[in-house]
């Protein structure tokens, strides 16, 4: 089945089985390996992508469901070689360890800050609660999102 969607700012068309897992389309057919797969059951969040700006689990979507959607994977977050403020904050705040949860975690944070630009730490924890991290204990990830919120907020008020 031919499926067209807007991926990371580009019109994209793939010819894949309609019921193929979207994460496999991204990772294997389009070679966008930044999106990870950790459990295949919607429990870990490693496969998180943005669909029309909102977090979704690409391991629980059929390829057909991407039709016509605006999809952002981690590869599509930086603009003109400049990383997103959330990515920058993850780097600066020590929020990255093994890095396997990181792409999903970053996208979850981007969506969270879109909806709530000034979250409390508890709200950040809530917003990231679908993304498991086994390395960090989440503390520095929450720090990073808090820092990113501040940075984005200052950017907007300017």
């Amino acid at each position: 089945m031919k499926i067209s969607f807007y991926l990371n700012g580009k019109d994209t068309c793939v010819d894949v089985p309609a019921d193929r897992k979207l994460v496999s389309v991204l990772r294997e057919d389009l070679e966008l390996t930044g999106t990870k797969e950790g459990c295949g059951a919607g429990e870990c969040g490693a496969c998180t992508i943005l669909v029309d700006g909102h977090v979704r689990l690409s391991c629980l979507m059929t390829a057909a469901q991407a039709q016509g959607r605006r999809i952002t994977t981690i590869e599509g977050l930086a603009e003109n070689g400049k990383v997103h403020p959330v990515q920058e904050a993850f780097i600066e705040n020590g929020a990255v360890q093994c890095g396997f949860c990181t792409p999903g975690m970053v996208l979850a944070a981007v969506d969270l800050l879109d909806r709530n630009p000034d979250p409390t730490r508890e709200q950040i924890r809530e917003g990231l609660s679908g993304n498991l991290c086994r390395c960090s204990g989440y503390v520095k990830i929450v720090d990073a999102v808090e820092a990113a919120a501040g940075k984005i907020g200052r950017g907007k008020s300017r």
């Binding site: 390996t33 994977t73 990383v83 993850f90 780097i91 990255v96 890095g99 792409p103």
Partner: peptide, 8 residues
């Protein structure tokens, strides 16, 4: 390694 990891 953080930059390569946050960009995928």
């Amino acid at each position: 390694d953080a930059r390569a990891k946050v960009t995928g």
